[in-house]
Amino acid sequence: MRLTRILSAASAAVLTATLALAGGQSAQAADGSARALAGRDYVALGDSYSSGVGSGDYDSGSGDCKRSNRAYPKLWAAKNAPASFHFTACSGAVTGDVLAKQLGPVNSGTDLVSITIGGNDAGFVDVMTTCILQSEANCVNRVNTARAYVEKTLPGKLNQVYTAIRNKAPKARVVVLGYPRFYKLNGTCVVGLTEKERGAINGAADLLNGITAKRAADHGFAYADIAGRFSGHEICSGNAWLHSVTFPIGDSYHPTAAGQSGGYLPAFSAGV
């Protein structure tokens, strides 16, 4: 049973090394105010969920950051033609990477920022590797360790990032996007993780989203719910917008192109 949970145990080393994170708008368009969006100076920050890992069609110039032309920031920019667009989101990014490497284009003239961050800080890769390859008890214990980090340490790291964004772009509309729940419980999957493991992972995602939403609100930023957008499109749903374990292995547990266009893009558009 445990053997059927992953393509092969030999993929574990590759998985650990390469898997990384990472309505209202239509009304605006109807009344003509979409023209105002064309004047925005937009910077897209964050991890692989913003860079578009899993959706393919990567910009060769982005290297290991794997910025996709199908990622929601690129899709939004193509649709709304902002005055300027800088895409610095990068696969594998943690909060410290945003502070050190991604904020260069953000300045007093920036009036729109998007960001997903926090999943890698919380140990996303190690959680999924543990749950896929080890016992149910080890999985749940690792998830609980991640939950403790999210509750005790991550809020301070998010505060640092959000404060830096606000200091550099005091007038910007900042939209913070969350993460999907990975699994539909009691769904179509007949092998793989146990329901207890899937439930624990989903619960950790809910906690991460809740902490992120609170930190965003405290900084005056908009929060875009992703879990709701992906409802009915989780792994084991029969119509998933998320990869399970797949090849290339780095795409595992990331949104597909449909997840970017059908989930993240409308969530961000509504937040703008």
Rank of each mutant, 00 (worst) to 15 (best):
K184P: 00
G54H: 05
N144L: 12
D97L: 11
A81H: 05
T116D: 07
G238Q: 06
G96Y: 08
V127C: 10
Y42G: 02
F221M: 14
Q25G: 00
V127A: 12
L99I: 15
G39H: 08
A204V: 07
V14L: 10
A71H: 11
A205E: 15
G23N: 14
L207Y: 06
Y49P: 00
A30V: 14
A78E: 13
A204N: 04
C131F: 08
S244R: 09
L177V: 11
H243L: 07
G32I: 12
V176Y: 00
S231G: 05
P170T: 15
V43A: 04
M128H: 07
G52H: 12
P255S: 02
V140L: 07
R35A: 11
Y49C: 07
I6Q: 00
S108N: 10
T16C: 09
K214C: 02
A257I: 00
V191Q: 10
L242N: 04
R142N: 07
I115W: 13
Q134G: 08
S26I: 11
T153Y: 09
S231F: 14
G39K: 09
R5K: 04
A71Q: 12
R198E: 15
V174I: 12
G46W: 11
A213H: 05
K171N: 15
V106Q: 01
A38H: 05
F124Q: 06
L75Q: 06
A44I: 14
Y58T: 01
K184M: 05
S60A: 08
E151Y: 03
V43G: 01
R147G: 06
S26N: 08
D225I: 04
L158W: 14
H86K: 13
V176M: 00
G46T: 06
G178T: 06
L177C: 04
T129S: 14
N120H: 04
D225K: 07
V272H: 08
V190C: 00
I235T: 12
Y58L: 09
L133Y: 13
L158Q: 10
E136R: 12
S252T: 15
A200K: 03
T188W: 08
F268A: 11
N107Q: 03
G187D: 12
A13T: 00
P82H: 03
